[in-house]
Amino acid sequence: MSVTASSPADRSRAWGADSRPEGLPPAISPDTLHAPLGKLPGGWELSVRAFRCWLVMYRRTWRASIWSSILGPLFYLGAMGYGLGSLVDAHGTASLGGVSYVVFIAPAVLAVHAMNTALSNSMFPVFGAMRWNSIYLAARATMLRPADINRGHLLFITMRIAMNSACFVIVMAAFGLIRSWWGVLLLPASVLLGLAFAAPVAAWTVTLKTTTPMNYIIRFGSIPLSLFSGTFFPISRLPAWIRPLAYATPLWHGVALCRSLALGTVTAGSAAIHVGYLAAMAAIGLWAGARSYRGRLYV
């Protein structure tokens, strides 16, 4: 097949446009491929298109994860909150601020659940889209830019976090574990917390070559975070030298924000610090994601 043909007609013949079987759409000629693209839609329009691709897939696969994502946190709430809580309450709850143990940990279980949903959706699925089923590479062949692909996937992850968090907030309300009308803000707070993890982690995962580092993030990152960030016991119980580290973790800010909303102890100053910290992480993650996706997809 000659690839040095000069006229457009020769070139389409060289691409086999004449010999295509009937019924197939016409082959794309090199002229179309190399034509100037014109102005792409700006803003988030293309990101929403990438998001809709993930929705189509989720419609086929949602059954697999629905049970563990709804029942998992309920198991923790039942075992730790009610089972272990009966022992804690018998011993006295002064160090918890006078509320029963289950009321103390329910907002923390919500925050941990949001973080875990964010991590499980921004690690293996991102890695898979890059390396296994190559969804990202297929998306690159369209007019989507790397930043659109990144933000489209993050929109889908945000939806998953919101779904799981909403289920748990409803359970909290049904069991009387929300003590204030500020509780209506629990859902946006947990979604913000999830995004503060998902955006930077997705930006990092897309650069990976093997899955092994992700196991380390779970075992040395999310598990210690979920155990020591003021979740199951107040940070004041930790040794004094390690407390500043616990106060600096993003999960603690999420836990403190959710707890103050559920108990109605929220103040403008502390809420501004927590929200600002989490929003800054999400913003940095979005910026880094646009860069790292560009690096991986435009090489």
């Binding site: 011993h91 075992r219 598990i223 119980r237």
Partner: peptide, 23 residues
């Protein structure tokens, strides 16, 4: 090794942290 570390984190958190709340 990292898999073996997971229950150790639970031991420190639940045993020491929550243990103080239970007696």
């Amino acid at each position: 090794a990292s898999g073996a570390a997971e229950p150790l984190f639970y031991l420190l958190s639940v045993g020491i942290g929550i243990g103080g709340l239970i007696g």
